[in-house]
């Protein structure tokens, strides 16, 4: 659905994205993850034919975004970052206007506008001026607009930024449901978001793709996946040294809480060291109040990847 080859974009004196290559297949929900300034918006604007690339190619549904930009745009529902809208229009009026711009046949306009208003929960504000809408409703108007012409592909730039937790949950739910019929590329710098909604993730940092895989594979691939936390009274023992002897434990850090030692173990992926830790505690007569495994999150993956980049 999306094909990007050697895409590079330079702004005066600065390279925003460098040599990107990726593909998004039909029906995928692709997450585009990276810190601020990584080049997510720039990439999406190129895909939406809003910016020209400095070099390289990109296509949507087989149409080159620069040479056949009109056809490419017709297949795309795009929601820009921060959702700019005409403040002086009313919600229904705006959606009708957008429907006409997107060449929806006259007789289908009111049906489509009604459908997207229903889907995005805009019924209660349909006659309000856009200027008077809260951030959450503006976001939904943007999403409704992107969905109007039933595009094969949705590109959503930071769809949940600036929303409160409740609204974030609603928008994520909406995106997940949309994923059943649409191909989606969504950008975010919030990690749990991609973990919850996406079937694949591209991690981008400083204009370069650092990783591209399913969330599960990314988690498996990472060296310091997961960890175990042990809270115990260890007496005079040197707990960290003894714990490090257990096979699979890479690193131990300790802290104190009210006489209890809190020991955080970083372990290799695919190993479960908890039985070994328990045996050790029993042998040494440690008093244990907690022994838990922490699953690696994309956050760990992200920190690992972006951090190792800084080191090099």
């Amino acid at each position: 659905m999306i094909k990007v080859e050697n895409l590079t974009k330079k702004f005066a004196g600065q390279t925003a994205i460098r040599d990107l290559n990726f593909e998004v297949g039909q029906g995928e929900i692709m997450g585009f993850l990276g810190p601020n300034g990584a080049g997510k918006t720039t990439t999406m604007r190129i895909l939406a034919s809003f910016l020209p690339a400095t070099s390289g190619r990109a296509s949507i549904a087989g149409f080159d975004v620069f040479e056949q930009s009109l056809q490419a745009r017709a297949h795309l529902g795009y929601m820009p970052e921060n959702v700019p809208l005409y403040n002086d229009m009313r919600v229904s009026e705006y959606l009708n206007y957008r429907a006409a711009l997107k060449s929806i046949p006259h007789r289908r306009v009111s049906e489509r506008v009604g459908d997207v208003k229903e889907l995005c929960g805009l019924r209660e504000v349909e006659n309000k001026l856009i200027r008077a809408l809260s951030k959450g409703f503006r976001q939904r108007v943007g999403l409704a607009d992107a969905l109007l012409h039933e595009p094969d592909l949705l590109i959503l730039d930071e769809p949940t930024i600036g929303l409160d937790p409740n609204q974030i949950r609603q928008v994520r739910e909406l995106i997940k449901n949309l994923g059943r019929q649409h191909t989606i590329l969504l950008s975010t710098h919030i990690l749990p978001e991609v973990e919850m909604t996406c079937s694949r993730v591209i991690i981008i940092n400083k204009g370069r793709i650092e990783a591209c895989d399913t969330p599960e594979n990314l988690l498996g691939r990472i060296r310091t996946a997961g960890g175990v936390t042990l809270e115990a009274r260890v007496g005079a023992d040197d707990a960290p040294t003894q714990l490090k002897k257990i096979a699979g434990v890479r690193d131990v850090s300790e802290s104190e809480d009210d006489g209890w030692k809190i020991l955080s173990l970083r372990v290799e992926s695919g190993t479960d060291v908890r039985p070994e830790v328990f045996r050790l505690a029993r042998d040494r007569n440690w008093e244990v109040r907690e022994l838990t495994a922490r699953r690696a999150t994309l956050e760990d993956v992200f920190v690992e990847i972006t951090h190792s980049d800084e080191a090099s």
């Binding site: 795309l76 795009y78 820009p80 700019p84 809208l85 403040n87 957008r98 711009l101 943007g142």
Partner: peptide
């Protein structure tokens, strides 16, 4: 200024 040029020009208009 308002950025509305972005939704405008990413719609299929010339």
């Amino acid at each position: 200024k308002l950025g509305t040029i972005e939704p405008l020009m990413t719609a299929p208009v010339r």
